[in-house]
Design a protein around this nucleic acid. Structure first.
Lengths: 218, 218
DNA sequence: GAGTGAGTCAACAGGGTGTTGATAGACGAC
DNA sequence: GTCGTCTATCAACACCCTGTTGACTCACTC
């Protein structure tokens, strides 16, 4: 520090010290990078601090804990997933398989793009109430969307009555969650990454319509 | 120790000190009891040792780590699940829904009976390679059984062709795993404990047969 | 009655988390 | 120009947890 030229102190918007936002971003980036190499429990706050170029106590100036960093990462991924879902064309009645496929693929692609964060969150959910709550909120909103879609399809006669729509929506969602996790983590029996969306779609169609070729609207 | 009566030392098979098996059993029992109250990461080796009436270093005489205790508990549950599955009557062709229901219920009941261990293992799987491997082994053997059953049903014309039997078996199994976990843990959207087996069964039948009333053999 | 082997634990070493209190620098107020 | 104040920083600390070491007890031999 004593060797730094005083002239440099006027360079840039706020002097030569990185701003708080830079530090926060650096911590998040470090976390996402390290999660690609090892699990959150194997990453110390010291690793995160050093990766961001600060000391461990300073880390606590930006985040209350390691888990809070993960929560912030999850929040970004969840926002991305919501946006991807919004971009799915709303053509359920005119082309059901394409609609459902679009929804399943939106989740698949978003979480695949952030595989390390996804896997770390799935793990942290067991111990971290905030991660659990956020994840549950996402699953709940997606469940409500599916419930509504199933009820529309039943109302127009495309899907037969059967299980309560909510029970059906919950188990299909759960299937997707676990299957995508297994595929990403290569943990236990899993489906090839290339096929996973189509396999899931087929089960969804059979569960909802009892056929993989449901009728389009008249 | 100095106040213990020497006369007691001849009581019982091996004197007044509990045997190694007793201690090991006491550690396992303590672990299963404490897992009903809090997660494994919130249980210290000291808690397990004290619960079994020994000091922490002595705990390490019996188990190399906390995780090894969980693995031993999982091993017992897995054995139980295998036995329950063996007791399911082998009447697939003569009454498909009953057969599949029996299989699903066997898992449901075994893991429900050891809910804390099940939930702890699902969590530990993320960090503990041995738990992960044992769990994957169980899922794999159950998957193979399902693959074989699906192929039988297709061969006799009861189930239509479609997805590769293995992909179908993997995703249906994954669904059960995640749904049962959510039901046990009350974590996120879940199905009522009372209904869960029937809801799962319905999806299985639709996915395999495209109907909930598959034909029995002629 | 010396040896053996299972069982036990106080004390230690090491690594992690989260907190405290002192400090350094930028910046507006006066 | 200096004086508070606010942001940002970190050495040092307190504490908890894990796993190891080495000495000890004690029943059971031969």
């Amino acid at each position: 520090m004593s060797t730094r030229s005083p002239a440099r102190s006027v360079r840039g918007r706020r002097g030569d010290r990185p701003s708080g936002d830079d530090r926060e971003g650096a911590i998040l980036a470090t976390a996402e990078r390290l999660l690609g190499e090892r699990s959150l429990s194997e990453i110390s706050t010291d690793d995160l601090a050093r990766g961001a170029g600060i000391s461990r106590p300073t880390f606590y100036f930006y985040f209350p804990s390691k888990d809070a960093v993960l929560l912030a990462l999850l929040d970004r991924v969840v926002t991305e997933a919501d946006e991807a879902l919004d971009r799915v064309p709303d053509d359920l009645a005119s082309d059901p398989p394409t609609y459902w496929r679009g929804c399943i693929a939106a989740f698949h692609e978003t979480f695949r793009a952030h595989r390390p964060v996804t896997l770390a969150c799935a793990q942290a959910r067991a111990t971290n109430a905030e991660v659990r709550a956020l994840w549950a909120r996402v699953m709940e909103s997606w469940t409500l969307l599916v419930v509504e879609a199933i009820e529309c399809e039943r109302a127009r006669g495309a899907a037969p009555p059967g299980l309560p729509a909510r029970d059906l929506a919950v188990v299909l969602n759960s299937m997707n969650e676990r299957v995508l996790h297994a595929t990403f983590a290569q943990d236990g029996p899993s489906v090839a990454e290339r096929d996973v969306v189509d396999v899931l779609l087929t089960v969804w169609l059979n569960a909802i319509y009892q056929t993989t070729t449901p009728p389009a609207e008249a």
